[in-house]
Simulated scan of single mutants.
Amino acid sequence: MAKRANGEGSVFKRKDGSWSAELSYRDEHGVLKRRTVYGKTQAEVRTKFRDARERIESGAPVKDASVTVAAWLEGWITKSLAASDRKQATKDLYATIARTHLVPTVGTIPLGRLRPSDVEALIIAKRDAGLAASTIRTIYTVLRAALDIAARDGMLRSNPAAVVRRPGVDRRDAPHLTVDQAHALLDAVRGDRLESLFRLMLATGLRRGEALALHWSDVDLDAGQLRVRWTLSRTSKGLQLEEPKTDKSRRTVPLPRSAVETLQAHRGRQEDERRAAAGAWRDADLVFTTEIGTPLEPRNVLRRFELLAQRAGLAGVHLHTLRHSAASFLLAAGTHTKVVQEHLGHSSYAITADIYSHVGPAQQREAADRLDQALRW
């Protein structure tokens, strides 16, 4: 990468009527080098000359890389992304997004010629294709992350995605169960091998990965609480236990009495399965396992829940609905939003308040009714 440039350049007209200018500079090793710029007019050449000189003096590359965006993305996936401290599931997602949505669209563009308008055109094309707003935001996030590394490595003067506004996501009320629907669901899961898992998730609002990674050593039935320290997910490297993404996700969650009773009964059934499996049992201290003690496959758990929800006559209800329902029930019962935030492990108060804003009107109506009763003589 160049360190300095001189302030002069020989600007002259060429035989074909175009103009050119030559800039000399020393690279990071002190080696004298030259850079020639061309243009149709003298003014264009002088502009390019000033730009080249500013790039050199600022430590930026003399010219942007000519490799394609596709080639850069593949290198980024196998090197920078792989070396990052992101969770393996996130690395897998980013690699899939890059290969599925970026390579076929902006992949043929030379890296140095990618412009903010190209990024905006990509966003528009994905919207026209009917992709979810959250998916489009992730596509932008992946592209920007890859280009950040290109700029860091001197392949680009600056990241063209950085000046493009991040795509927004429409806020929608989190889908949640009514009390009657919750009872219908609990009736449908009764007797199922995964009944205890689903009951615990509804009672605590644990994420799927958090519940499947729960260890008995993290459960204190006497104190009526559990600790969230791990999350289980399927990755390209198999099932992996990883630490939660944020400090807020690592938390202690109180257990309602019904949840304590559910776990007590579940532990007894697990002991029966352990004895039945005999030498085939693989003890990993996990609360929820297969019949031989191994971790449950997250996708199988999801499929099983959706089948049971259909049997209960609950259309459009997914496993994550249990988490939203737990939060809605807590808020409807008058629990402060800050407490619910800590209960769920959200990174900020604003996230909880925004996701569950639908509970507010009901609480306001209840408060107004109570005030009305208090004012009556």
Results as ranks from 00 to 15, higher is better:
R165A: 13
H266G: 13
T290N: 05
F12S: 12
V67P: 01
W230S: 06
R35V: 09
D173S: 12
I124F: 02
D192L: 02
A95Q: 11
R207L: 01
R35A: 12
R53N: 08
R157K: 12
H346I: 02
L102A: 09
A71C: 02
Q373S: 14
A121L: 10
T252L: 03
S357L: 07
D51I: 01
V62D: 02
T231N: 12
D148M: 06
A326P: 09
D153M: 04
T68P: 06
R208H: 04
L371M: 15
N159V: 09
S158W: 11
E195P: 09
R376Y: 11
A213K: 05
L239Q: 04
L221G: 12
R269P: 03
V228T: 07
L143D: 15
K87P: 06
R370F: 07
S196I: 04
S233T: 14
W230M: 02
T47F: 00
T352K: 05
T36D: 14
A353Y: 00
E291I: 03
R229V: 03
L212V: 03
G360K: 15
S328H: 05
T178N: 06
P110Y: 05
L194D: 13
T352S: 08
R274D: 10
G7K: 11
W230A: 03
E22Y: 07
P244V: 08
L344G: 03
M201N: 08
P295I: 10
Q225P: 00
T135C: 06
L214R: 00
T78D: 14
Q42N: 10
S18P: 09
S258V: 10
H336A: 14
A332G: 14
S249F: 08
V219Y: 08
S347G: 01
G30E: 00
K48D: 05
A277D: 08
G154A: 05
L202N: 12
E74T: 07
G130T: 05
V119T: 10
R46Y: 12
G59P: 05
P295F: 00
R274A: 08
K248V: 09
R207I: 09
E210V: 04
V164T: 13
V179H: 13
S348Y: 07
P361A: 04
T204C: 01
W76G: 04
V11H: 14
D148K: 10
L212N: 00
